[in-house]
Amino acid sequence: MTVLDILKYPDEALKQISQPVESFDEELSTFLANLEETMRAGPGGVGIAAAQVGYFSRIAIVDVSSKPKIKHNGCMILINPEIKTWEGMKVGREGCMSVPDYTGNVIRAEKITLQACNAQGELCDYECEAYEARAVQHELDHLDGLLFLDRLVSRRTDLFKRKKYK
């Protein structure tokens, strides 16, 4: 397996829209292994999109299982992913391997459901929430040429907006 080079903004290639995967072959599984290796090599990397290594196919990997005490789906290989439903909104802090030395606040849906093919090309359904949902939305943005920089909100935004149901 190989750790691939990460494209870094201002590389304009990151703004490119990725194309759907059509064949689930040997080449794809080799690429997936390398992409996962690259994600795990990154500092705290819990997700990666193929576009970040200059491979403009609709592929992302998210694995937040290393984080303590959160709900997760394990290692998700997301090919041709599509978010079906969004629920709630929350401000959270994000960073990106393609934007070193910067973190910023971004509003994301708290809960999502999505459909994506796995490495074998089988369609799978997922429910994600909180941290994992954030990671998925961040990675899927990469497939549409969007960076978290495109969604930054002010540091003050979260003030008084926290849910209180008690």
Binding site: P43, V46, K67, E94, G95, C96, T103, A135
Partner: peptide, 10 residues
């Protein structure tokens, strides 16, 4: 209100 900042890097 004390909230952890859990940075998601992806």
């Amino acid at each position: 209100d004390v909230t952890p900042i859990d940075v998601m890097i992806g």
